[in-house]
């Protein structure tokens, strides 16, 4: 399944970020997924749990921010929602879009890490 490959890439790169920042675990990962990224959010959520098993991401929350597709018109100054089913024809003037503004994102926006523990070697305060 495709989303498993994506989820694995997400886990790898979030895991690397956690390590760079000295964190042993990850609280959450925020993903931005464009409407035209070709990725199904629900399938991705399911795969994420599988891909995270046995890594620093185990138990991490996956937050998916869906980014609507918008395009800039090539004929008038407007921009418009590409919509569903998608159309790159401007509803205002009928001309074709010059470029897509948003909608193909597939990126890790951020990871949330626990604060680092107290420096090693300092024993926890005794409760006696």
């Amino acid at each position: 399944m495709h989303e498993l490959s994506i989820a694995t890439a997400v886990v790898e790169s979030a895991d690397a970020a956690a390590r760079r920042h000295g964190a042993a675990s990850v609280e959450s990962v925020r993903l931005r997924v464009g409407e035209l990224a070709g990725v199904v959010a629900d399938a991705l959520r399911f795969s994420f749990g599988l891909a995270a098993e046995g890594t620093a991401l185990a138990g991490a929350r996956l937050e998916i921010e869906e980014v609507p597709a918008r395009a800039r018109c090539g004929g008038c100054p407007g921009d418009f929602a590409v919509g569903s089913p998608p159309s790159l024809e401007c509803p205002g003037c009928g001309r074709s879009a010059a470029e897509l503004l948003t909608g193909r994102e597939l990126e890790i926006a951020a990871v949330t890490l626990p604060e680092p523990d107290a420096p090693a070697g300092v024993p926890p305060p005794s409760l006696s």
């Binding site: 994506i6 890439a9 997400v10 979030a14 920042h21 949330t112 604060e115």
Partner: peptide
């Protein structure tokens, strides 16, 4: 627990 957020803006398929 305190948390910190690391902003990545990292394309998931950057490696590919």
């Amino acid at each position: 627990m305190m948390c910190r957020t690391v902003d990545l803006r990292h394309a998931v398929l950057a490696k590919n």
